[in-house]
Write a protein that binds this DNA or RNA. Sequence first.
DNA 1: ATAAATTAAATTGTGCACAACTTAATTATA
DNA 2: TATAATTAAGTTGTGCACAATTTAATTTAT
Lengths: 148, 148
Amino acid sequence: MAEEHLKLENQICFSIYAAAREMTKMYKPLLQKLDVTYPQYLVLLVLWEEDGITVNELGRRLYLDSGTLTPMLKRMETSGLLERKRSPEDERRVIVTLTEQGRNAEKDARDIPFQVIDHLAMDEAELKQFKASLVKALEHLHERNEKS
Amino acid sequence: MAEEHLKLENQICFSIYAAAREMTKMYKPLLQKLDVTYPQYLVLLVLWEEDGITVNELGRRLYLDSGTLTPMLKRMETSGLLERKRSPEDERRVIVTLTEQGRNAEKDARDIPFQVIDHLAMDEAELKQFKASLVKALEHLHERNEKS
DNA sequence: ATAAATTAAATTGTGCACAACTTAATTATA
DNA sequence: TATAATTAAGTTGTGCACAATTTAATTTAT
């Protein structure tokens, strides 16, 4: 028998890991109309809030680096959702801008957050507490990981 | 300006997704001694609890399918942590068994759960509530995803 | 007993995710 | 003002993750 603390059911991090995967599976049918993956949907969420930002800024908000974003943005450019062009002021930077199609996609996304809340089946109070813990863990871990 | 519900900061699922990734990064230095990835560590946790189970059973516990497990188990076999052999009673099944090295690795893992708790920086009550919400979301989503 | 259905792994193909490195542009400094 | 240091993207290589399909073994139903 394994050490009690090494049992899978006692691993909070396993719950996060598994919940994240089940969550992206849950999103799949909801994103069918948009024809994007969950990470691509996150890129759209950021650009709908603020269009014309750099790859770097996108990565800062999504906690992703260029190694992940560059190929993903290329796929999204190919599928017609956005454009990538070098900044004239600083040729190192690449500015990401939504196309007409990318902007219009927001309409099709409006109801997704409500469907997600339904699927989670938690009351407002629990959801609020849950999200607060998640954000706390996220920010704490991110800060820790940055330092080292 | 984007619809309020479509703002990234209001997305509980983004918190799960990002926290899961920061969590695996946090584990990296803790797993260095074992020389395994986080998903491989989860396989070890299961086998330390019950050795000699099938790929199927492993997948049921970790919410992973053979498409993910088969290549991962092959890597772990190559690195000497486990063995894979067909069951004589049912040639379809593959039984996964720890090697001496795989069993011994448990000793090196004993202190990991405590280090993790430290890194999360939550008091016991919050941690308990947090995990309860995670497990609830996980099981609810899993059940939902199975059905469809 | 044999054909049909089911089950367990493996395979194939696509898309992240990230560490480590490279390239090119900009900024800081001697 | 050369040169060193820094910054921003991109590239390379490895390892998941999963849908869809394939292969082979076992069960079920005819």
